[in-house]
Design a protein around this nucleic acid. Structure first.
Length: 412
RNA sequence: GCGCCUGUCGUCAAGCGGUUAAGACCUCGGAUUGUGGUUCCGAUAUGCAUGGGUUCGAAUCCCAUCAGGCGCCCCA
């Protein structure tokens, strides 16, 4: 019979992967709580409309990448990202009444129907932060600081922070119009993708990789528009303040005028953190400010900033970590005595196993050396004298002690 | 949705039209009735993703299907 395999774009996270995943999760809890952030867990599926209204129905995520299904005449969708869900929970639980800032962090699986490739799966995991209620750039700075310090705590240093400001909806509209004006004469020279983007999201035109398009965008009159500081005075001030905070905090970043990000809800600050060691899906973190999302989803007008990180991408940068061995393994031909000793040790909070198949002494010891740090030898002599021989399997040193002293030896 | 590459044991692989389908690791058994991990011996693919074809002969060549990888689009 044919075996059933994991579905395309999904992966098992196996026991040997756990040390890295626990490390990422424990570090998230530790670092984010240093900033006063609290963990939140929202459901894995939500009303489809939440994402259509939240993420934006012109985005690829909503248009072609969602896992949507009907149940009892409701349209439901597996969450493709978690900002919309957290905002929904924020609104529904009246969290705008809490003293600002409300800092929330989350981790968990997300689902996007895409062609899998390196650093991209259909089920993947994100860890992220959302900070609500602060319009000042201090919040932007703190969010970026949390991201940078989390990555540092994971031991990842070869990363670059890219920063841009999209302005507010008003000044961005002016920029879009200007951009379309200067590009219009060359429209027929552009690749089909760019022609589509020209209407759909002109800001995305700029990072096209097709040579002909790049040639067009390199033209002086177009470059002049791109490089111009189109954002309005207030947006510029917000951006400048943010930069001065980051400078003061010693965070290295580079300004990337082409950084736009694909989700509709961003305004003003957007940022990405990239790695040079990842292949083409090199963004490890993406985020920004989304001041109108809470209101758009029916909540009180509440400014917000956040980011999300791809945990599989982080995991591949962290590399392998050794699995922790079981502390003790009881070696004995007397199964009953072996269980008793094993349980005694477990009750003291120390991991311990014994041989369930009653193999020969040598085989038991061999098994012990594979899975455990100490072999606890309980032979006839030891049982008669109420003793245990504790053998360190790395150093081969062993001592015979009374039953009561076993825990002391294991703890030392 | 499009383009390129790849499918041989649980894993990593050799094989390049005629082989009994190497080898290594893992696993299991033994040497070894109380001292392991480093030694030695043994076991484990009538099978080369699946289905067709070409050929006297196919894991090897061709076609299709399926699966995986990478890239584009987009994104974490």
């Amino acid at each position: 019979m044919a075996i059933i395999k994991v579905q395309k774009g999904t992966k098992d996270i196996l026991p040997q992967d756990m040390p890295v995943w626990h490390f990422m999760e424990d570090t998230a809890r530790k670092i984010f709580s240093e900033y006063g952030a609290k963990e939140i867990r929202t459901p894995i599926f939500e009303a489809t409309e939440l994402f259509a209204r939240g993420v934006g129905d012109t985005t690829d995520i909503v248009n072609k990448e969602m896992y949507t299904f009907e149940k009892s005449e409701r349209s439901l969708t597996l969450r493709p990202e978690n900002t919309a869900g957290v905002v929904r929970a924020f609104i529904e639980n009246g969290m705008h009444r809490l003293s600002a800032p409300v800092k929330l962090w989350y981790k968990g699986p997300m689902f996007r129907y895409e062609r899998p490739q390196a650093g991209r799966q259909r089920q993947f995991h994100q860890v992220g932060i959302e900070v609500f209620g602060i319009k000042q750039p201090t919040a932007d700075a703190e969010v970026i600081l949390m991201a940078v310090n989390y990555l540092k705590a994971l031991g990842l240093n070869d990363l670059t922070v890219e920063l841009n400001s999209l302005g507010c909806p008003e000044c961005r509209e002016v920029f879009k119009t200007k951009l379309k004006e200067v590009i219009k004469p060359y429209l027929q020279d552009l690749c089909p993708d760019c022609q589509a983007r020209y209407e759909k999201n002109p800001l995305r035109l700029l990072d096209c990789k097709v040579e002909e398009c790049k040639a067009v965008y390199a033209k002086p009159e177009i470059q002049e528009v791109i490089q111009s500081d189109f954002i309005c005075e207030e947006c510029a001030e917000h951006f400048n303040e943010l930069k001065s905070y980051l400078d003061a905090l010693g965070i290295n970043y580079s300004i990337n005028k082409l950084l736009v990000r694909g989700l509709d809800y961003y305004n003003r600050t957007v940022f990405e953190i990239k790695s040079n060691n990842l292949g083409s899906q090199n963004a490890v973190c993406g985020g920004g400010r989304y001041d109108s999302l809470v209101r758009n989803l029916g909540g009180e007008d509440t400014p917000a900033v956040g980011f999300a990180m791809g945990m599989e991408r982080l995991a591949s940068l962290i590399g392998n970590k050794e699995e922790e061995k079981t502390a003790g393994f009881v070696v004995s031909n007397n199964t009953l005595e072996a269980v008793k000793l094993t349980e005694e040790i477990r009750k003291a909070g120390i991991s311990c196993e014994f041989d369930l198949t009653n193999k020969k002494f040598v085989k038991q010891l061999e098994k012990a050396s594979k899975v455990a740090k100490y072999a606890l030898i309980l032979g006839e002599d030891e049982i008669a004298k109420n003793q245990v021989t504790v053998k360190n399997l790395d150093t081969s040193e062993q001592v015979t002690v009374t039953r009561e002293k076993v825990l002391e030896v294991l703890n030392s």
